[in-house]
Write a protein that binds this DNA or RNA. Structure first.
Lengths: 153, 153
DNA sequence: CTGACTGCAAAATCTTTGCAAAGAC
DNA sequence: GTCTTTGCAAAGATTTTGCAGTCAG
């Protein structure tokens, strides 16, 4: 079964076990952050997530620091992954999807995902060639997406 | 002639023309920043560059802001290029080298460069497939370098 | 209860900006 | 001289941390 059709309840159980096995606590804030990321498959800044939760659950108390702390936690557990935009911060996305890379539009900021077997294999070859123990790899193609090209024309 | 054996005087002339044609001025600070990057083929943070200049030319007045401003200028002119480390800032390197990607060691922070024809071609294929007008692409393999693996053993 | 978690505000990083003085042409 | 550039310090933007109160188990 591909990872990307894991249901939210499975994800949540997974998260709860993770917390328990590390002596951490299950809180409303942590759950909401995970839920927002799961239910809005997309790419969000910590602030986006903070605002979405404030909007959707106005009664819940939440500080931006908690969002950052939880995202770090979730990233360590590989339940979310991030893509960096230099000075402009990071965007997070649900992490239990199949591995993929990104096409980022410099005009609209939109992100498309892709997976390419050739590139994946070649990365392993390169790591091997340099005796590098690869733990992660990112590939980001920057450019102008189809829609923005049309706008410019 | 490959780009990577361009001499410093060629680079400097190139830079001077660039400045002139944009109504900008040739200053000692700008020259030193370019020179440091050219003569120390490596990857530097703005602060590294600032400190290197302060050390090598203690009498020259220089502010960190000028380093940032000049790096932006040089990057726009594609005379330097940068590699981002998220919250930990960026590192800059001389930009008139042949295109290459990076292997970054998470232990020592060291950077090795590589070039892979297969990956380059494949990136173009992907851009084409998604009707994406590619302007840039980065690929960064993170892991543990040979030396650091040895240290751990 | 106990220790982890939270929000808040302050601090830390990295980078940019406003401005008066200095410098290039 | 004119207009750009500079250094400085202050401001920005993003992220992290210290801490006292709160909450999960």
């Amino acid at each position: 079964m591909p990872n990307n059709i894991v249901t939210y309840s499975e994800v949540l159980e997974n998260f709860k076990s993770l917390l328990k096995s590390n002596g951490l606590k299950y809180t409303k804030q942590r759950e909401l952050i995970l839920e927002i990321i799961y239910n809005n498959h997309g790419h969000f800044t910590p602030e986006d997530i903070y605002n979405l939760i404030k909007e959707s659950y106005p009664t819940v108390k939440l500080g931006i620091a908690t969002v950052y702390r939880t995202l770090t936690l979730l990233e360590d557990a590989q339940m979310v992954s991030s893509i960096s935009f230099g000075t402009q911060g990071k965007k997070y996305e649900f992490g239990l999807k199949d591995h993929h890379d990104h096409l980022v539009c410099q005009e609209c900021g939109g992100i498309e995902e892709f997976f390419d077997e050739t590139i994946e294999k070649q990365q392993e070859e390169i790591a091997k060639k340099y005796n590098f123990k690869m733990t992660n790899h990112i590939m980001k193609i920057t450019g102008i997406c189809e829609a923005c090209q049309a706008k410019q024309a």
